[in-house]
Amino acid sequence: MWPEAPKATVRLLERLGCRVEFPVEQTCCGQMLTNTGYADQAAPLVRRFADVFEGYDAIVAPSGSCVGSVREQHPMVARKAGDDALAARAENLAPRVYELSEFLVDVLGVTDVGATFPHRVTYHPTCHSLRMLRVGDRPLQLLREVRGIDLVELPGADECCGFGGTFAMKNADVSVAMGTDKAAHVVETGAEVLVAGDNSCLAHIGGILGRRRTGVRTMHLAEILASTEGDRA
């Protein structure tokens, strides 16, 4: 749905010397099924994930939500399906699955990725990255090293934006109210760009910002980190 983020992830990782492959056999990690009570139907996707990615040194995703599902839910789904062998495969694979900022800071050991982005930016830490993966300030470490950036703190940054997958549909009024509060905080910063590590949050907050004609645009963390001096952003 938002190909810019994975494309930017590939450009960034290749610039940092990684050999990146995108196996075409991959599909959804199954989180949507698991979170809506269809864990049995998610089990084949857990098996596919293991089949496709077991041979890699590291699996990197520009989504704390997806990485959280793979690391936390896949073993549970496999056990619930009565497949202990698959659960063991999922548990062995989980430590090699990284959210983008985790991989850059913890595995590659870099915070300055050679990015340039001369704009006023504020950062929203998404719930899965903040609470499930505990990525902490890794995204901020990376953003602080971007040349030309004016990084401003987002008030109430650790508050949920209200998306929450199907929560936004089942509890639309509450979801919109939470998103409206978040959007107001974004506008308060005077930022040109709101950045986050999950496109789902960006879609929710960005939709509200757009409908209110705030002029604030949204970008994935990977897009900013992949930006160089010659890019037009």
Score class of each variant (00 low, 15 high):
G156S: 15
R11D: 10
L154K: 09
A42V: 11
L221G: 02
A39S: 11
D158P: 04
M178W: 11
T34G: 06
R15D: 13
I208E: 04
I149Y: 14
L143Q: 15
V70C: 05
T166P: 03
I208V: 05
L221I: 11
G148S: 10
G37S: 06
P155Q: 03
R48V: 04
E159P: 00
L209H: 09
F53A: 05
A183I: 11
G82D: 07
L133N: 09
V146D: 09
T218R: 00
R19L: 02
R144F: 04
F117I: 12
S227Y: 03
L154E: 04
L225K: 09
A184N: 07
A50V: 15
V146C: 09
G165V: 02
G165C: 03
D112F: 11
H74M: 15
T9N: 02
N199L: 12
L140H: 01
V135F: 14
F103I: 09
R71M: 12
A39F: 09
M76I: 12
R120W: 08
V121K: 06
V186L: 10
D198K: 03
A8E: 10
C161V: 08
T116A: 14
A85F: 03
G215H: 02
P125N: 11
I208G: 01
R144S: 15
A42F: 14
H128M: 08
S63A: 15
M1Y: 03
G68K: 11
H220Y: 04
A87P: 08
H119P: 00
M32T: 11
A42Q: 07
G68H: 10
H124F: 09
L100K: 14
V121Y: 12
V135C: 14
G82V: 02
A85C: 02
G17N: 09
G190C: 13
Y98V: 00
G148F: 06
R217M: 05
L154D: 03
Q31N: 06
V121H: 09
F103T: 00
D51I: 05
V77L: 07
G68D: 06
